[in-house]
């Protein structure tokens, strides 16, 4: 039986919520393997572990639950050890590295922020800011929408203006939120957002971060910010 590892916490008495279960079907009970003054949060691993949504969520849930009670270094999904004994060996070999990171991350949480534009609002904005575009829009409209070439040319100019606005607003959001954070890291590459970034913040500062997000959206109605957190500090472990 192999051992699935969720994360690493300090000490050898890490308390787990009663009845906490993890990956697998039926879900395997979560337990702790200790060594070198550290605790690995683990469960038995099913023979055929596949990255199913159920198991991804279980991984996230275990880390969230344990993280409420103790600082925990979250493992990436799918880390499987040969045995509990190998987990103890790893804890002992790298205990300094894990202790250092646990110290750095104590009382810190991750907030992931993704930003898109409300399309209607950003189109309004770029037209309001650009006389040439506005004149073209009005001419096209007066012309029953304009010819295919006119619409194409106009739309290209609008798209260019929107892209410039995306770069501008990405800097705006980062500039507003970064001062509230102790760390910043770009989110995983993914399409669909003009900004995807994670911040490491003091768990008591989460409210201030959310307030600043609210202020940004109020003052810049073209911004649509999606906030995920507090999360285990996935983006700030090495």
């Amino acid at each position: 039986m192999t051992t699935y590892v969720y994360g690493i916490a300090r000490g050898d008495r890490t308390e787990l919520p009663e009845g906490l279960t993890g990956i697998g079907d039926p879900p395997a009970p979560v337990r702790v393997v200790t060594g070198a003054g550290l605790s690995a949060v683990v469960s038995d691993c099913p023979g055929e572990l596949r990255p199913k949504r159920r198991d991804l969520l279980a991984h996230q849930r275990v880390l969230t639950e344990v993280g409420r009670r103790a600082t925990v270094l979250p493992m990436r999904f799918g880390s499987v050890s040969d045995s509990d004994e190998q987990v103890r060996t790893v804890l002992a070999e790298h205990s300094d590295r894990y202790e250092e990171q646990l110290d750095r991350l104590t009382g810190r949480v991750e907030y992931n922020i993704k930003v898109v534009h409300h399309e209607d609002a950003v189109l309004h904005l770029v037209l309001a800011e650009n006389t040439e575009l506005r004149t073209l829009a009005e001419a096209n409209r007066a012309d029953g929408g304009g010819s295919y070439e006119q619409r194409l040319r106009f739309g290209e100019l609008v798209a260019q203006a929107v892209r410039e606005r995306e770069a501008h607003d990405a800097a705006l959001v980062r500039g507003a939120l970064a001062p509230l954070a102790e760390g910043e890291r770009p989110g995983p590459e993914s399409a669909g957002w003009f900004l995807n970034v994670s911040f490491l913040v003091d768990e008591d500062a989460g409210g201030r971060l959310l307030a600043e997000v609210g202020r940004l959206e109020k003052e810049h109605p073209q911004l649509d910010l999606k906030v995920h957190g507090p999360l285990p500090p996935y983006s700030f472990v090495e």
Binding site: V5, G7, I8, P51, L56, H59, Q60, L73, P74, M75, R76, F77, S79, V90, H94, E110, N112, G187, P188, S198, L231, Y234, S235, V237, E238
Partner: peptide
């Protein structure tokens, strides 16, 4: 984040 970030041993 669960898939792309987090500690790798």
């Amino acid at each position: 984040l669960v898939l792309d970030r987090g500690l790798v041993i």
